[in-house]
Design a protein around this nucleic acid. Sequence first.
DNA 1: CACCCGGCCGGAAACGGTTCCACATTCCCT
DNA 2: AGGGAATGTGGAACCGTTTCCGGCCGGGTG
Lengths: 340, 340
Amino acid sequence: MAAIGDVARLAGVSKATASRALSGNGYVAEETRRRVESAAAEIGYIVSPDAASLVTGRTKNVGVVIPFVNRWFFGEVLEGIERSLLGAGYDLTLYNLSGSGRDRARVFEFFLARKRVDAVIAVGVDLAGHEVSALDRREKPLVCLGGTGGTAARLSIDDRAVGQLATEHLLHLGHTRIAHLAGSGASGQPDTVQGLRRQGFLDAMDAAGHAPSPADVVETEMTMPGGYRAALQLLGHPGPRPTAVFAASDEVAFGALRAAERLGIAVPRELSVVGVDGHEYAEMFDLTTVEQYPGEQGRSAVGVVLRLLGEGADADPLPDSGAPMPTRLVVRASSTAAPR
Amino acid sequence: MAAIGDVARLAGVSKATASRALSGNGYVAEETRRRVESAAAEIGYIVSPDAASLVTGRTKNVGVVIPFVNRWFFGEVLEGIERSLLGAGYDLTLYNLSGSGRDRARVFEFFLARKRVDAVIAVGVDLAGHEVSALDRREKPLVCLGGTGGTAARLSIDDRAVGQLATEHLLHLGHTRIAHLAGSGASGQPDTVQGLRRQGFLDAMDAAGHAPSPADVVETEMTMPGGYRAALQLLGHPGPRPTAVFAASDEVAFGALRAAERLGIAVPRELSVVGVDGHEYAEMFDLTTVEQYPGEQGRSAVGVVLRLLGEGADADPLPDSGAPMPTRLVVRASSTAAPR
DNA sequence: CACCCGGCCGGAAACGGTTCCACATTCCCT
DNA sequence: AGGGAATGTGGAACCGTTTCCGGCCGGGTG
């Protein structure tokens, strides 16, 4: 394979000049630069990123750790991150942190600790203290998107406010008995996404003077089948039912809709449903939801990372640091006034 | 940061020996090895993959190019690949090849051509001739999972057989007017996934002596909203309707189910629906489907790649090369005998 | 006893770039 | 006119590994 020395020889300059010409750092006469470039093109020269990062210490590569790729929110975030990174000339190394077992430790101690990534974006993962300290001992910038634990840069929506907003929407419609399909762990870990959305729900209910019965808050995996099962449990018994459900995510809400259909409960006449996410399918299901914009969030995270890495002010402006990412209530046919 | 020289000094050996001790290549006395290892642990030494791959020419990193991450099949494949790769100590660099424009060229010419990946797995992408030749000019093994164009190693299900199988299932149930919700491009590109499934459908119909009317084969984006819209178009008019639909993917089938519900068409009494994929949600929707196993496919692809890279025979046995990956018809409540 | 071979180790040469430093011009300013 | 700054270039050091080669030792073999 052609190395920079070959290019230099062909162009009649030194390696140093060739390097400067190709990388654009330092002074080099316009005419020389052209000569070097055409020499490089002629022999099909491509730089070795390994050699370059060996000496510069920067790899132009960022690690992304993410617990799922096949949940809508995460997939969307990942796509946003990927696109931005690629645009900035960075590679993206993916770590799918599913379990919390030894694989997880391996990712942090073996893969991320190595010098192959310049920075890490953690999306929706709850970092342990030693995990984040392992990272900044290596002086690797860390940006968190959702999740908990990082003292580092953090981007997030206001999940408590989201829960509150969705619930208030139902309250305004006159519902009084509102159930909540919460993400699993919502009551145990109050500062996670699930916990905060649940808290928002409780706050809104409380402010309206309602105290939901414990049976009306059920926790479930945040997937469509999870929501389906939880809704069957919540609604599938004789006797009075809640007239509205606030689902912790759109996928859970879809499952609830399917369960209602299965149980012969008419939506929205007998049951209003609202979710959160702004899922691609929400419109098709006529689902009222609090939208968020994961692709945008991913892009913002990349913006922060690049800033932290000292890449110039070329990118989009930073979101006001500390300010939550935007969300918006979108009302569709799945929610309506409470039946009398 | 600690380099291997520091480890060597601390252990009282040369860099060469330290390297051998840590990498496990070449002769080194057991006792020395232990001394080196504890020295390394003491100062928290970690190798620089950049330096290592600079000299060995191998990066322990494979590139994955994939058109979507947020479609079930692709997400599942990606997860399978990731898990396997991680297990083998490899990194995974993700290239989300969405458009076919300049971004795509950039990925192939700039990112993949560089020496940062040892091999490439292309899932569900139709490679152009110059794209694959660019890769093997660099002597980078290429494994294709679905998609077309690679002369290289290829893993795939038999999509034509899948279409045929699904259609035959409906024929056996007595249906005669069967519609097909095909993936877009099915008729234009006969050797793509969509094209082959459509061909299998046509073959089965033909063998049964039926000639589907052109209006009963409609093409759509392979997503749930796509299936929804296409099914509305297919079923949402007065007059006689097909009694069964073969959807090119489960997500399309879900959309069709939703459309049927919207139109007041009872499934399966008035309309049978079958899909293909074995989507996570299929059971919840009671969908009859031809299952495939994308996670498994991803793992197999990694197996092939590792073999190609000369990693020992430690991994799972190769699937019989050339043999299609397994599929299985799973009958659920969405398909039943044709109404009389 | 001479020889060879296998285990074990160190010195030094790569690998392919970037960057520091020194040096030579040219240019501008006082 | 003189001096310093800006521009352009080359030599050489350096980044952190792996690996080739050669030397040393001990033991089995002819």
